[in-house]
Design a protein around this nucleic acid. Structure first.
Length: 483
RNA sequence: GGGGCCGUAGUCUAGCCUGGCUAGGAUGCAGGGCUUGGGCCCCUGUGGUCCCGGGUUCAAAUCCCGGCGGCCCCA
């Protein structure tokens, strides 16, 4: 198989990412006069929309109902759950004025929507018979990030926050719901070819107001971890805080149990980062806004040009009528080579070259984006070949991404090994752990990493010892540098 | 939270240290010619609040202060 260089992709990922979102016209960042806010451009918007199509499909098919809540949350409502507000307080944007008048009650730009959604659930849901209830919305949320912001990865306005909120009549059912959330995200990331690691976040890094948090992370080309999805069991924390009770089968009143889970723009960022290379994007055919681009290569005479163009359009029609998203690049003042680079940067999975040679022989030359391999095929086999090629590309991207992620995971049993890892390599480090925060914190300091959490499903570490205190390890624990 | 680097045309960038000429180049964009199987070539043109505000100076892209914004490293 052919391969495309990934030197820039891997060696200078931050610059590569900035370059690719500009070059492929995905996202305009750094020019908006407010820190941490960017613009989805038409092509990027289409990629985002196709990702969201999958997100919606996965939620709808499992009984989730899409809703839309207001952006503003009054201060007293946001403050109801003590831990929750403690966790978010430092990064809430407040609306303090209406026109020239100071407001009596400050209004928060939602950093997340547990509080206002729970408030409405308490109005709508009275009985266990209405449960489980699963809502979701896809909205902007705002967080006043003080750290360095990054396009699509650390934003002050997260423009694509899919947040699901569910209600249950027992703790057990909320536990089942967390499993369903995990299944939804597994499927989402599999469909996008994004490899992932599932961890239970340590106590000190769980969602503010949750009993616990399960997180999906992926490893970026520079070896840093990117959180791409989270699922929280909220227990009764919010229902108690908002005095939301339901009637159970035995007639008693009880606070229901809740979960919430979310993904964001980061899913698109991961899609772009994980599959890209030095030429630009490489999109899975199922997501690519344009699946096939046809490049006519005109011959000398006017007559030849006309034949080539006619054939190009005819091929496009064939594909279009089979539901394939196709574009013919008919620009006359751009040479074929320049067009190749143009569409490669945009990650179009398959290119078809149509020149005099092809017209004469009744063949087509098709080139795949992931490997840049070219193939000559008889025209009548086109649809078949494409179908196979789409599948191959999808699988190849996925496998390449998975191999990369695997190569970035290291296991160590001693601090010596761990320190060696820290000095030579990056990525994810897995070590045995006694379970004490103090030991994990020491590792964080010595290796300059963050505790990612423990494996989900849980994984014990029989016969192994915590490399710090020497106590028997009760689990594996993960460390990495993060975004 | 701490430290460092940086901000010049749509994009990339020279000039800044050592203040002074019409802010130069590449790319892009527009027009023309020639071409078209991996970023052709030539001609002409277009595009600048030198991030913003203040200060120093006869004179500021350049020096100083503040702000805004971006990147990197460390916590």
């Amino acid at each position: 198989m052919g391969s495309v260089p990934r030197d820039r992709w891997r060696g200078d990922f931050s610059r590569w990412f900035d370059w690719v979102i500009e070059e492929a016209e995905v996202y305009d960042y750094g020019r908006y006069p407010i820190k941490g806010m960017g613009v989805w451009r038409p092509y990027g918007f289409q990629i985002r929309r196709r990702v969201l199509d999958v997100v919606r499909e996965l939620h709808d098919s499992r009984g989730h109902e899409e809703v839309l809540f207001p952006l503003l949350i009054p201060e007293d409502l946001l403050r109801r759950e003590a831990e929750h507000i403690k966790g978010f307080e430092g990064e809430v944007y407040w609306v303090t004025h209406g026109g020239l008048e100071p407001l009596d009650v400050k209004l928060a730009l939602r950093p997340t929507s547990e509080t206002n959604i729970t408030y409405y659930e308490s109005l709508w849901i009275k009985s266990y018979k209405q449960l489980p209830k699963k809502y979701y919305q896809i909205v902007s949320v705002f967080r006043y990030e003080t750290k360095a912001t990054r396009p699509m990865i650390r934003l002050r306005e997260v423009t694509t926050f899919k947040e699901a909120h569910t209600v249950h009549d027992s703790f057990e059912d909320s536990e089942r719901q967390v499993l369903e959330a995990i299944e939804i995200y597994r499927e989402l990331f599999e469909r996008l070819g994004i490899p992932y690691i599932i961890s239970r976040r340590p106590e000190w890094d769980k969602f503010a107001g949750a009993l616990y948090t399960i997180a999906f992370d992926t490893i970026m080309p520079d070896g840093r971890l990117l959180q791409i999805g989270t699922a929280h069991n909220l227990g009764q924390n919010f229902t108690k805080a908002l005095d939301f009770k339901i009637q159970l089968a035995d007639g008693t009143l009880e606070y229901p149990w809740q979960t919430s889970y979310g993904v964001s723009d980061r899913v698109v960022a991961a899609l772009i980062a994980i599959h890209g290379d030095d030429r630009g994007l490489a999109l899975p055919p199922s997501i690519a806004p344009i699946q096939v681009v046809i490049i006519p290569i005109p011959g000398g005479s006017e007559e030849d040009k006309a034949r080539v163009l006619a054939e190009s359009r005819s091929v496009a029609d064939t594909l279009r009528s089979s539901g394939i998203r196709v574009v013919v690049d008919e620009r006359e003042d751009v040479r074929p080579g320049a067009k190749y680079y143009h569409w490669e940067a945009r990650g179009v999975p398959v290119r078809i070259d149509v020149g005099l040679e092809e017209v004469g022989a009744g063949t087509l030359t098709i080139a795949r984006r992931d490997t840049l391999e070219k193939l000559k095929i008889p025209r009548e086999r086109l649809l078949e070949e494409l179908r196979t090629m789409f599948k191959d590309i999808e699988e190849n991207l996925k496998e390449r991404a998975l191999n990369f992620m695997r190569s970035m995971i290291t296991r160590a049993d001693t601090m010596d090994e761990a320190e060696k890892w820290a000095s030579e390599k990056r990525g994810l480090l897995e070590m045995p752990w006694c379970g004490r925060e103090e030991c994990a914190r020491t590792v964080e300091e010595r290796l300059e990493v963050k505790t990612i959490g423990t494996p989900w499903p849980p994984e014990d570490a029989p016969g192994r010892r915590c490399p710090l205190c020497g106590a028997p390890a009760i689990t594996i624990v993960r460390y990495a540098k993060t975004y």
